[in-house]
């Protein structure tokens, strides 16, 4: 059915036009593109020795300017190189944790909304519980009992941030299931698989997409917070672990602003970019939000 494909293409094109009409969303997308580029290219461009504490010769705590664009840290490594190389882990943790979290949330949300009854009520009870419990406190507890590492951080964030997705997805599932076309599909003889697969999931997916971008934003901040509290992966460089070092080494009292500002600005830029893209997508999906 080429007609169907034509139609999908026009739908996508219309969606893209609506997205492109929002300057902040496009700016966010461009920023993300840049961040991904940096994350992929930097490890290839950086020499093996540049970040090795034992091989670095520059003096510690050197302010920006002389030789080093953004100065050096407490071991004499270039802050600029550290920040650029930290992009990869921050992005990776953010994306995988969010992907996992949204997958769990969607599964639970659709199941709870579709099946209803005591099973749905139970799932919702659990969701509401985890929604109320401070997610970060749980994540801290989880990552403190599990072995340190990137996997733990991802798991801790994903396992504590799914409830908001589950809630939104459940609400949307209920809204779709209340529509007469689902009643019609049931009357035609459609079972659970047909109703969820053909009617519910396609209607829920755009919302899931929005939620993913917003969850990535949350996950990146959460990663930096866990790292700051000393729960991060000690073998990997991320923006959060840089700030953890800055705190430990007393960057504030040394007024070493060049060590503090760049990783923080990196986090803000990427998180803001994801948030802006998410909000722009939300406007595309829900035209009522448009001005």
């Amino acid at each position: 059915m080429s007609v169907v494909w034509d139609r999908r293409r026009t739908a996508w094109a219309a969606g893209w036009r609506a997205f492109a009409a929002q300057r902040s969303g496009v700016a966010g997308l461009a920023l993300l593109g840049l961040a991904v580029l940096v994350a992929v290219l930097m490890p290839l461009l950086t020499g093996a020795d540049a970040l090795n504490v034992a091989r670095v010769v520059a003096p510690a705590w050197e302010p920006p300017g002389s030789g080093h664009l953004l100065g050096t840290d407490h071991t004499g490594r270039s802050v600029a190189l550290l920040v650029l190389n930290g992009t990869a882990v921050s992005l990776l943790v953010g994306l995988t944790a969010a992907g996992l979290s949204v997958a769990i949330g969607t599964l639970i949300g659709v199941t709870a909304g579709h099946f209803g009854g005591w099973w749905g009520a139970l799932l919702m009870r659990v969701t509401d519980f985890f929604l109320v419990i401070p997610a970060l406190v749980l994540a801290i507890a989880l990552s403190s009992v599990l072995p340190r590492g990137m996997g733990t951080i991802i798991l801790a964030i994903a396992l504590t941030s799914w409830p908001s997705t589950a809630r939104v997805v459940r609400a949307q599932t209920l809204a779709v299931e209340a529509r007469p076309f689902v009643e019609r599909a049931r009357a035609l003889g459609g079972g659970h698989l047909h109703v969820t697969g053909k009617h519910v999931l396609p209607a829920v997916l755009p919302l899931v997409l929005v939620n993913t971008t917003l969850t990535v934003a949350y996950a990146i901040v959460a990663e930096s917070t866990l790292a700051f509290l000393g729960l991060g992966d000690p073998t990997r460089l991320s923006w959060g672990s840089m700030l953890h070092q800055a705190q430990l080494q007393g960057a504030v009292s040394k007024e070493a602003w060049w060590f503090l500002l760049p990783p923080g600005l990196g986090i803000i830029a990427v998180v803001l970019a994801f948030t802006l893209v998410g909000r722009a997508l939300e406007t595309v999906i829900n035209p009522r939000l448009r001005g």
Partner: peptide, 17 residues
Amino acid sequence: VQLVLQDPTSALNPRHS
């Protein structure tokens, strides 16, 4: 036995041709 609903605009999935 087939069902015909009141409001045809909502009885059809807006995404389906």
